[in-house]
Design a protein around this nucleic acid. Structure first.
Length: 246
RNA sequence: GAGUGGUGUAAUAAUA
């Protein structure tokens, strides 16, 4: 089972979900970890329906779901905005103890915020036993996504340690609230810039009437050895078309 | 090197 689970996870990372399911079916036995691997694989690729079905089958076939299972299901709910299922799991399966596990609590928080319930997300964050960087990042993103840029920024400055994800969220917050100059300052201040951070910065300029700077950043990124992806090109092309037809 | 889980970036279109 262990080797099968490794293979299932590997396939899922490459997006080969069907092969992953095939491996699962051919495995001599399956345990909670291999079920979880397959559920998470489907959840990550937007196969919400499959993820839920697997979850039910697992229960029927006598494998008890654990915290990891619920995280997989919750992230499927979050991705598809299925607040009903998410709430059901929160109430019936998790009860009170879920907040002891920061991973599970963050998945819950994220699910509520993506379903538009920022109040529930903040309540979970406040009640969490421990908050790691990911939990902080999740609450910053939760506020941002629900239009509470002021709160997002407050959380960002209050958090003890920030990683590249925190900084990128902050840049997006500043861009969405039209504070491009401040976004630039934050971008300069952030220690490590990855592809997503560059994309956030380039799109910020492309979206706010500064296509020239967007293209400058695009070239700069290349000079820094960061390779563009589809999003980068869309922003760059968008800037070109703005310049061509003012 | 020893199986499974959470957080960040744009546009457009569609749906509501």
């Amino acid at each position: 089972v262990v080797s099968y689970t490794i293979l299932i996870t590997g396939c899922a990372e490459k997006g080969m979900i069907l092969l992953a399911e095939d491996l699962f079916l051919h495995s001599p036995e399956n345990d909670v970890a291999s079920w979880n691997a397959l559920i998470a694989a489907n959840a990550r690729h937007g196969q919400m329906r499959n993820a839920i079905d697997l979850f039910k089958r697992m229960d029927l076939e006598g494998t008890r779901p654990d915290g990891i299972t619920f995280v997989g299901i919750l992230s499927a709910c979050a991705a598809s905005g299925d607040l009903a299922t998410g709430k059901l799991i929160h109430r019936s399966a998790l009860e009170g103890s879920s907040l002891d596990d920061p991973v599970l609590a963050t998945a819950l928080l994220d699910m509520y915020s993506k379903a538009g319930d920022l109040g529930a997300a903040m309540a979970i964050f406040a009640a969490m036993a421990q908050r790691d960087v990911t939990a902080w990042n999740a609450i910053v993103a939760a506020c941002a996504r629900n239009g509470r840029f002021d709160r997002a920024e407050r959380f960002f400055w209050v958090m003890a340690a920030r990683d590249v994800i925190s900084w990128t969220s902050m840049i997006a917050v500043l861009a969405q609230s039209g504070q491009i100059d401040r976004a630039r300052l934050v971008f300069d201040e952030m220690p490590d810039k990855d592809l997503t951070a560059w994309n956030a910065m380039i799109s910020a300029h492309a979206q706010h009437g500064d296509p020239r700077s967007a293209l400058k950043l695009f070239r700069l990124m290349d000079l820094e050895g960061v390779h563009p992806d589809e999003i980068t090109y869309v922003c760059a092309l968008d800037s070109c078309s703005t310049l061509a037809s003012p």
